[in-house]
Nucleic acid binder design. Structure first.
Lengths: 210, 210
DNA sequence: TGTTTCCTCAGGGTATTCCCCGAGTTTTGA
DNA sequence: TCAAAACTCGGGGAATACCCTGAGGAAACA
């Protein structure tokens, strides 16, 4: 029997999960908390998996992952949240969470996730995996077409701009006049369709123009 | 019958693929090229899918994707390569490739991929998807720690900078003085450890500070 | 109840970017 | 081979970003 704890400030969620797992012969909810402080103070060492809400009254569950894991190194944490937000997932995983579930999960998925993290595997729902993949690949195939081709010189200069070179430094580095560099900068802003260097850097990184 | 073309400078690869698909009733290799120039010049408009090698004598297949797609907007490109390199995959997809296959692929996978891209879906082998996922999840745990925490106000302003707002526009938007915005900008540059807005935007996007 | 951090704002100045104009040379490609 | 595109450079000016110093009020924290 796998002992699982849950931390969520909404009692309804706790009860929901409890009900969901009531009939399970493999998993049991042995503890429930409504805040990070409670969890850190009261978690029983026998608990193997913690379902941890992200929005808690006394702080972010994501941030708390680190601290909790420091005291309970063998614990596996599954983040539990309403938000399908890529950056949340990343942060949670980076802070040591092994899984990330949405609150509309079902019994099968919940048990699968618990078993997976207990086995040392990472567990992410399929749609979350797809979101991460999309984010990682960028949405460029369509949008890239909108950006006119940059010339080699323009790409070169754009690369240096991203590396924080000023116009003067660029000119010195590639042996051309600062006026020429200014021309290229203006053309870049024009071509890419932004209004300043910040936009230039953003679009370049987002779409991998360089 | 789906008409497929292949571009690869190794005739052996071409013949291998041809043999692999010989028995297929759905897919046929109708053209084969050994360079980008040949491909661009000779590709028949009827061809629906192009298997494109990445290393070609007259340039990179990845770069060529854009040009080829400009001339054949309805074509679907599957990159074909020996390299399991995440950045290659990303670049290929960003340049419009709909799939990325390793050369040790088998018949089933090849046909699956062709059908998928033809249906407008992206096709990546499972191990490539996993690599992307790992890369996406695992990059920042160390690097994020190097950056001092930004305050809420700083994050807010950084977000607006990335959206190309000028100091004046930011001040107007959040109802504070331009001088205050300048303070925040200076502090941001200081904290993040860069020397100008370009660096600020780059680091913010790279490490997901906002 | 202090101390620190955050947020606010200012003066005054320098550096850099951005934009307008025009124009010559070189390279590319049909 | 001829036109287009790319690369080069200039003057001059307005807008924006960046730096330094200093400082008061508010909120968070111990």
């Amino acid at each position: 029997m796998i002992e699982v704890a849950i931390t969520d400030d909404h009692v309804i969620v706790i009860e929901g999960i409890r009900t969901l797992l009531k009939s399970s012969k493999e998993v049991v909810i042995s503890q429930a908390f409504t805040s990070i402080a409670e969890t850190v103070g009261g978690l029983h060492p026998r608990v193997q998996v913690l379902l941890l809400d992200i929005n808690l009254p006394d702080g972010s569950g994501i941030e708390a992952c680190k601290d909790i894991l420091q005291r309970f190194p063998n614990l596996r944490i599954i983040a539990l949240t309403n938000y399908e937000d890529v950056s949340f997932v990343k942060q949670a995983i980076r802070n040591g969470a092994m899984g990330y579930l949405l609150k509309n999960t079902d019994k099968t998925q919940l048990i699968d996730a618990i078993k997976a993290v207990l086995a040392g595997e990472r567990y992410l729902p399929k749609n979350v995996r797809e979101m991460l993949l999309n984010e990682s690949l960028g949405k460029a195939p369509a949008s890239a077409a909108f950006i006119p081709k940059l010339t080699n010189r323009e790409k070169e200069i754009l690369g240096l701009i991203i590396k924080e070179y000023t116009t003067e430094e660029i000119a010195a580095k590639i042996f051309i006049s600062t006026k020429t560099v200014e021309s290229h900068r203006s053309n870049l802003i024009q071509k890419v369709g932004v209004k300043n260097t910040a936009g230039l850097v953003r679009v370049a990184l987002e779409r991998g123009l360089i």
